[in-house]
Amino acid sequence: HNLTITQGKLFFHYNPKLCLSEIHKMEEVSGTKGRQERNDIALKTNGDQASCENELLKFSYIRTSFDKILLRWEPYWPPDFRDLLGFMLFYKEAPYQNVTEFDGQDACGSNSWTVVDIDPPLRSNDPKSQNHPGWLMRGLKPWTQYAIFVKTLVTFSDERRTYGAKSDIIYVQTDATNPSVPLDPISVSNSSSQIILKWKPPSDPNGNITHYLVFWERQAEDSELFELDYCLKGLKLPSRTWSPPFESEDSQKHNQSEYEDSAGECCSCPKTDSQILKELEESSFRKTFEDYLHNVVFVPRKTSSGTGAEDPRPSRKRRSLGDVGNVTVAVPTVAAFPNTSSTSVPTSPEEHRPFEKVVNKESLVISGLRHFTGYRIELQACNQDTPEERCSVAAYVSARTMPEAKADDIVGPVTHEIFENNVVHLMWQEPKEPNGLIVLYEVSYRRYGDEELHLCVSRKHFALERGCRLRGLSPGNYSVRIRATSLAGNGSWTEPTYFYVTDYLDVPSNIA
């Protein structure tokens, strides 16, 4: 807008934040220059609390790290170098490059900038070799853009010569660093050979998330399962459950009422301010606690030095998902009996873990797994792929695949051998790939016309006998059925096997 004052003059007093240069501009645009008398524009009460600059400061050096910015700028000295009290560095987070010096300023003089007072450097006698002032900004957020400017702080001049310097606002972004852990990993099994893994992005990506790394490792069953005799009275049979499938998407929606109208769909109840505040506090606490764990609990591995020492970490090797089922080394339970199943799973520490690289999504279907087997899954978020990966501390989750139908069934015939004193040795093959492992066998036998009897055969007993022995049988026709019990439950009964026990007292003698 054009402003013209045809008559009258300007009068400025007691404006401590208004620089004289701005008042002189007002004289020019209003056409009143030359009308004012000496005392109409006070030299001592206008701009006496402001830094009124008329020179431009330029930054000469900028260096960044993930949490620091090192700045240096060209030296500046007023005509009387004693008038320079120091520099004021202003900075704040700036997602967009549209910041002005006066953003967030209120009537009390406060604003949204963080201000650092910096002492002037030592003055050199040689004007050509003056030290460049600077400042190291610490405690910054990774991968965050900051708006920065600097200006001088000078003393009051009796001659009211307006001098000083100020830089333009520059924008500097800190470097990326390792992201925080992925949030809320959930693993479920939808079949006997697959596990579905879902997660949420890290709360602090500290860069642009480029991919996720998912490692999985087959877990050995508890050692007590191999040692305890679950045929003993009072000892509860062990059981394991597989990871249940995901709930429906509708039930997972946030901010939804727990109660549904019987007449149909209901609208979600909005969260109160107290609920939102509580969630923010919980989120802040979780982030602080995660940072504490990362800094205190997890110790970084030592990389190899120039002395030739090897990095103890196993090298990563990509495998196809079809090879995942046989990740671990199978060892027989008892070496003397080769027909026992290889369900003991000690994992070799030198073995390469299978892994998958996930790009542009937060889910993965891990296939080719062994049925009813526990897996430990390790999830890392990465925001750099080359020249070397920059990934987060791992988040861990466990899951067990679903049982395989008929995996616990005894394959092959049940054979028998009759000894003296009416002892019958029953023999059968253990299931080759049971659900988890076989903890015991149930032997059901009966003599024709009598009630059915049951015998429990422990895992250890089966390994020693290759089956079991029935003792003290009365003469007669017998039928026997056997079924295995694994961590997933009972298998199917075998087809009945028949044998006849004679009275050993009636056996004919070869003595003449």
Results as ranks from 00 to 15, higher is better:
K317G: 06
P205F: 12
E279L: 12
K233P: 12
V424R: 01
L437P: 04
F462N: 01
A335L: 11
S341N: 08
T340S: 11
S509V: 09
L213Q: 12
G436N: 02
V324N: 14
S315H: 11
K361I: 06
N208H: 04
E290M: 06
Q219F: 13
L277A: 07
F226E: 13
S509L: 12
D503P: 13
E433M: 04
N422S: 07
E221W: 02
N421A: 12
L440S: 06
E265T: 13
E281F: 13
C269P: 07
L487M: 13
S268G: 07
L437S: 00
P346I: 15
R313A: 14
P245T: 08
T485V: 05
R286E: 08
E217D: 12
Y500G: 07
I438S: 03
K271R: 13
A309F: 04
S223P: 13
N435C: 14
K236M: 14
N422Q: 13
F226K: 02
S474Y: 10
Q252E: 09
Q275D: 12
L225F: 03
R318S: 11
G472A: 13
Y504D: 04
S392K: 01
P270I: 06
S243Y: 04
S239P: 14
T497L: 07
V296H: 11
D229G: 15
Y396G: 12
S257E: 14
D408A: 02
A336W: 03
E221L: 11
I482G: 01
S315A: 14
N383G: 05
N339M: 06
D222V: 13
F337K: 08
A484I: 02
C266F: 08
T272H: 07
L237I: 05
F246S: 11
D385G: 12
I438F: 02
V423I: 06
S444T: 14
I482R: 01
Y396S: 11
P496S: 08
Y396L: 09
K302H: 13
V331P: 14
A263Y: 10
L379F: 06
K406Y: 05
E433C: 03
V507M: 12
V297C: 03
R471G: 08
P387D: 02
D503Y: 08
L213M: 15
F289A: 05
L455M: 12
S315L: 11
N295L: 07
S304V: 13
P245Y: 14
S305I: 11
G368Q: 05
T485L: 14
K357M: 08
E221M: 13
G374E: 15
T303M: 10
F372T: 03
Y498S: 06
F246L: 13
L225W: 11
E281R: 13
H352N: 15
F462L: 05
F226Y: 09
F285N: 10
Y375D: 00
C269R: 12
N477T: 04
P475H: 12
L455H: 08
C266S: 14
K432T: 06
S284G: 07
S262E: 01
S262Y: 12
C269W: 13
C231Q: 01
F372G: 10
Q275N: 13
K432Y: 12
S315W: 14
S315K: 03
E350T: 13
K236S: 13
S458I: 03
G234L: 10
S341G: 08
H352T: 06
A395C: 07
R316V: 15
V414W: 02
D323E: 13
V397A: 11
Y478N: 00
V214S: 03
L455K: 11
T502Y: 14
A381G: 01
P245M: 15
D204W: 11
S348A: 04
Y396W: 09
P332L: 08
P270S: 11
E417M: 08
N477R: 09
P349D: 14
F246T: 11
H352C: 02
S305N: 10
C269Y: 13
E350Q: 11
V443K: 00
Q256M: 14
R353P: 14
A407C: 01
R466A: 07
L228M: 06
Y259V: 06
E247G: 06
G472Y: 14
D261A: 14
P205L: 07
G207E: 02
Y292A: 05
T347N: 08
L369I: 02
N477M: 08
E265H: 13
L426I: 15
E442R: 04
I377Q: 02
D291I: 14
S458M: 12
S223Q: 14
T210G: 10
P205D: 00
H425W: 05
P332Y: 04
N206F: 11
H352Q: 06
H294M: 13
W242V: 14
L437R: 03
T340E: 12
S203P: 03
V345N: 05
R370K: 14
K406W: 09
E265M: 03
V345A: 07
Y500I: 08
A399V: 09
Y448L: 12
P403L: 11
Q256C: 02
R240N: 13
V424K: 01
E260T: 14
C266M: 04
N421D: 14
E404K: 11
T333P: 07
D503V: 12
S320Y: 11
Q380S: 10
S398M: 05
L369A: 14
A394Y: 06
R390W: 12
S268T: 14
P475S: 06
V457R: 06
T502W: 05
A220K: 05
I377D: 00
H425L: 07
K236V: 07
L464D: 10
K357T: 07
I209T: 03
L237A: 14
I482H: 01
G325N: 14
N206P: 02
S458R: 09
P245S: 08
S283C: 14
E217N: 13
S398P: 07
Y500W: 13
C391Q: 01
L235K: 07
V414L: 09
D311C: 03
Y230H: 02
R319K: 11
N383Y: 02
N206A: 14
P434A: 04
S283N: 04
K278D: 11
N208D: 15
L232C: 15
N421Y: 06
K236Q: 14
N339C: 07
G264N: 13
V457A: 04
K236E: 12
R318E: 13
T497S: 09
K317A: 05
C269D: 02
A463C: 08
M402C: 15
S262V: 03
A463Y: 05
L321K: 10
H454Y: 15
Q384M: 12
H211Y: 15
P354D: 11
L440Y: 12
L225I: 08
L369W: 01
P338G: 10
R319E: 13
R483G: 01
A381K: 03
S284V: 07
K460W: 07
C269Q: 05
V359I: 11
A335V: 10
S243V: 11
E281Q: 12
L280V: 14
Y498Q: 12
Q384L: 04
A336I: 08
K357R: 10
S320E: 14
D291K: 03
E389Q: 13
E260C: 13
I418F: 07
Y498P: 02
F419M: 05
H371P: 10
H461Q: 11
R376K: 15
L437V: 05
Y230R: 12
C456V: 03
S315M: 10
S223E: 08
L369P: 01
V359K: 12
H254S: 15
G325I: 09
A407S: 07
R390F: 06
R466V: 07
S398T: 14
T502C: 08
P338N: 07
V443C: 02
